[in-house]
Design a protein around this nucleic acid. Structure first.
Length: 594
RNA sequence: GGUCUACUAGCUCAACCGGAUAGAGCAACUGCCUUCUAAGCAGUAGGUUCCAGGUUCGAGUCCUGGGUGGAUCACCA
C-alpha cells in the first residue's frame, strides 16, 4: 500500500530530522481536499512539540526530506499546517497494474475466528414487514462483510414460534377458519395466519367494548374478555403438550414457514441454521441455579430471582418468575449458552432493533458476571426504526408496509422504468424478468443499507423506488456500462495488460479513480469494525461516480489515445470487479447489461 | 421522573473517532445524446450544523447546561 510507504517515510523523516521515534502506525494520512494540489495530506499540527518549529516550516522540512530521500514524490506543498504530497504517475500506474492483475485483490485471509450473526427473528403470527427488511438486509450484509474480513461466519435465525400471540391466531382460526388453507384462500401461508391474528384482535376489542358498556372497568375488561381467557387456556394446553393443540400449531407453523421461505428466497437470503423458540424457551434455568450458587443472582421473598446491576447503572432485573417459569431474559441466557456450544464463536452479533438496547445491556452484563469467556464478544447490532412519512408503523392502524407487497412493487416499478427507457430490446423474457428483479431488489436493499444502521431512518416509498442518483440501480448501471466496454474490448481484441513504463500523463480523473480503488480494503475493514454496511454502500457509490466522471472525460476507444487503450481497459476492468465485490458485500446482484 | 438516543441545505442522508472553504442525492434552474448505454455528465442556487457556554493552534465532532423528537424503565416477548 502506498500510504504505508508514505507513513514509513514520514516516520523516518522524524527520526532523521528531529531525532524522534514516531511509529508509522501513529501517523494518519487523509485524502487531500480537492481545492489543493496533492493526493495524500499529513497534518503536522499534532507534532509541533516534536518539531519545535512553526507549522509551515516543519511541514516544509518534512516534505523536503521525503522528496529528497524517496523516489515517488512528484511534488509537495504546505498550506498552513497541512503537508500535501503529490505522487508521481508511475506509482498510480503500478497500483492499477496490481489491482487489475489480481483477481482476489482486497480479499483478506482467514483470521481463524468464528462469528455468529443472528438476524431476522420473525414471529410466526404475521408476515414480514418493512422493519424486518432492514433487519434482514443488515444481518445478511454484515455476515458477508465479516466473512470477507476473514471470519468464519454462521448465520442463524431465531424464530419466535410460541407464546400467547401465536395462540391468538390459532384461536381465531379455530373459530372462524372453516378449514381454510393457503391454497383455498389463495394466500401465502404467513399472510393467512396474519389474517387470523388480525381477526382475533377485532373480536377481542369487540368483547372489551361490550364489557365496558355493561359497566366493567376498561383495565378489568382487558383481562376478562372471553377471547383472551381462551388464548391463555390454549397456551397452557400447548405447554402441557395437548395433542390437538400441538397438531394445529404444527399445521399452522408449516404454512407460515412455507410463506417465510418464499419471501427469504425472493430476497436472496439464506440461513445456516434455524433456531425455534419452542425448542429454547425452557433453557436458562440451570444458569439461574448457577447464578444463585455464585451469588450473582438473589432471591426475593416470593421466590422470584433477580440480578442486581445497580453498579452498572442498570438497576435490578428479574431473571426468573416466582412460580419458577422463564422470562425473556432466562431464555436468552440459555440461548446464548446453547449457541456458543453449537458454534464456539469469538463474536456473536445480535441484529435486533434499538428498542431492546436495555435488554441486551443487561444480558451481556449478566454473562460477564457469570464469567463466560465469550461474553466480551457479544455485540448488539442495534438498528433504528424505520419511519414512514405518515409516522410510525402500527399494525393496528393498518399502516404497516408488508414486505411481500413492497418487494412486488419494486419489481413492477423496475419493469416500468426499464420498458420506458427501451432497455430490453434484444433480451428474452427470462433475462428481462431477472433484470427487473435484480434492479428492484437492488434499489430496495441499497436504500435501506446506505443509512447508518444505528440511526432511525425515514422510508419514503417514492424515494426508495427512485432509480437515479444515489441509488442501487445507478451503481448497477455503471457496472452494465463498463461491461459493454469490456465486451467491445474483447471483440477488438484489446488486452487489459499494459506496459507500466509506457503510460504517462494521467488525468486527475484517472488518478482519483485509482486512488478510490486503493481504498477498497480500508472500507472493508471499517465496515467490519463498525458493523456498518453503510460504509461499503458509500464506498461503492463514490467509486461508481468516479468512474462515470472518467467515462465522460474522453472516449475510451479513441485513436488519439491508442497507447493508453489497454490502460483504460484495465481501469474499467478493475472498477467493474470492485463494484461487483462491494455490491456482493451488500447482497446486491449486478447486471452485465441493462 | 430515571436511563439511553437523535437533531447538519426545502426533503433524505454523508463528513474517514478533533483538521483546511461542512459534502452527495432528490426537488428547482442552465447546458450536453450522429462518437464506448443520457438510469449518465457538467454547472447555478441552497448552511448561524437546535440554543448558550466551555476545552485548544482548530469543534458538526469532546465537556457542561438547556430545548425538541424517539426508545426504554413489566413476574410481556
Amino acid at each position: 500500500m502506498l500510504d504505508i510507504q508514505l507513513r514509513n517515510a514520514i516516520s523516518e523523516a522524524f527520526q532523521s530530522l528531529f531525532d524522534h521515534s514516531l511509529p508509522a502506525d501513529d501517523i494518519t494520512l487523509q485524502p487531500t481536499r480537492k481545492e489543493f494540489a496533492g493526493n495524500y495530506t499529513f497534518v503536522v499540527f499534532p507534532f509541533l512539540k516534536i518539531t519545535k518549529g512553526k507549522p509551515e516550516d516543519s511541514g516544509q522540512k518534512i516534505g523536503e526530506w521525503i522528496k529528497a530521500n524517496t523516489e515517488w514524490i512528484k511534488d509537495f506543498n504546505v498550506v498552513k499546517g497541512f503537508l500535501n504530497f503529490e505522487l508521481k504517475d508511475v506509482h498510480w500506474v503500478n497500483r492499477l497494474h496490481e489491482i487489475s492483475q489480481d483477481e482476489n485483490y482486497g480479499s483478506l485471509p482467514a483470521n481463524g475466528e468464528k462469528v455468529m450473526v443472528e438476524f431476522s427473528s420473525p414471529n410466526t403470527n404475521k408476515p414480514l414487514h418493512l422493519g424486518h427488511l432492514r433487519n434482514n438486509f443488515l444481518g445478511d450484509a454484515t455476515a458477508r462483510i465479516l466473512a470477507a474480513n476473514g471470519y468464519e461466519v454462521m448465520k442463524v435465525n431465531l424464530v419466535n414460534d410460541r407464546g400467547i400471540h401465536i395462540c391468538k391466531s390459532m384461536l381465531a382460526y379455530q373459530q372462524f377458519g372453516n378449514n381454510e388453507t393457503p391454497e383455498s384462500a389463495g394466500l401465502k401461508g404467513d399472510h393467512l395466519i396474519g389474517k387470523y391474528y388480525v381477526r382475533f384482535d377485532q373480536e377481542y376489542k369487540k368483547e372489551i367494548n361490550e364489557l365496558v358498556e355493561s359497566g366493567t372497568q376498561p383495565e378489568a375488561a382487558k383481562k376478562e374478555a372471553p377471547s383472551i381467557l381462551a388464548a391463555q387456556a390454549m397456551l397452557q394446553k400447548w405447554e402441557s403438550g395437548d395433542p390437538e393443540t400441538v397438531a394445529l400449531w404444527e399445521k399452522m407453523n408449516d404454512w407460515v414457514y412455507a410463506g417465510f421461505d418464499q419471501t427469504y428466497d425472493t430476497m436472496g437470503i439464506r440461513f445456516d441454521k434455524m433456531y425455534k423458540e419452542s425448542d429454547t424457551y425452557l433453557l436458562g434455568k440451570d444458569i439461574v441455579e448457577e447464578g444463585l450458587g455464585k451469588a450473582v443472582f438473589f432471591k426475593k421473598e416470593n421466590e422470584s430471582v433477580w440480578v442486581d446491576l445497580t453498579e452498572e447503572k442498570l438497576d435490578e432485573k428479574l431473571v426468573l418468575r416466582g412460580d419458577g417459569t422463564a422470562v425473556y431474559m432466562t431464555q436468552d441466557m440459555g440461548t446464548c449458552e446453547m449457541k456458543h456450544k453449537d458454534f464456539p464463536f469469538n463474536k456473536s452479533v445480535f441484529v435486533v432493533g434499538n428498542e431492546q438496547d436495555y435488554h441486551f445491556k443487561v444480558l451481556f452484563a449478566i454473562m460477564k458476571k457469570l464469567g463466560r469467556s465469550y461474553a466480551e464478544g457479544l455485540y448488539h447490532l442495534s438498528y433504528g426504526m424505520v419511519d414512514l412519512p405518515s409516522g410510525k408503523m402500527k399494525s393496528r392502524e393498518g399502516t404497516v408496509v408488508d414486505a411481500d407487497d413492497l418487494l412486488q412493487e419494486m419489481f413492477d416499478t423496475a419493469e416500468k422504468h426499464t420498458r420506458e427507457l427501451g432497455k430490453i430490446e434484444g433480451m428474452d423474457e427470462k433475462e428481462a424478468g431477472a433484470l427487473y428483479h435484480m434492479l428492484g431488489l437492488g434499489a430496495l436493499k441499497y436504500f435501506l443499507l446506505k443509512v447508518d444502521p444505528k440511526k432511525r431512518m425515514l422510508f419514503n416509498p417514492k424515494e426508495s423506488i427512485e432509480f437515479q442518483g444515489h441509488t442501487g440501480p445507478f451503481i448497477q448501471y455503471t457496472h452494465a456500462r463498463i461491461s459493454a466496454i469490456l465486451r467491445r474490448a474483447n471483440t477488438l481484441e484489446v488486452s487489459s495488460v499494459f506496459d507500466t513504463n509506457n503510460v504517462t500523463d494521467l488525468s486527475v480523473r484517472e488518478i482519483d479513480l485509482i486512488y478510490k480503488m486503493t481504498e477498497f480494503t480500508t472500507a472493508l475493514k471499517e465496515a467490519a469494525k463498525d458493523y456498518s454496511p453503510a460504509v461499503v454502500a458509500q464506498y461503492v457509490y463514490d467509486l461508481a461516480k468516479e468512474y462515470n466522471g472518467f467515462y465522460q472525460e474522453v472516449p475510451i476507444f479513441n485513436e488519439e489515445n491508442k497507447d493508453k487503450l489497454s490502460f483504460r481497459i484495465a481501469l474499467s476492468l478493475a472498477t467493474a470487479r470492485l463494484i461487483r465485490k462491494s455490491m456482493y458485500l451488500l447482497g446486491i446482484d449486478v447486471p452485465e447489461r441493462m
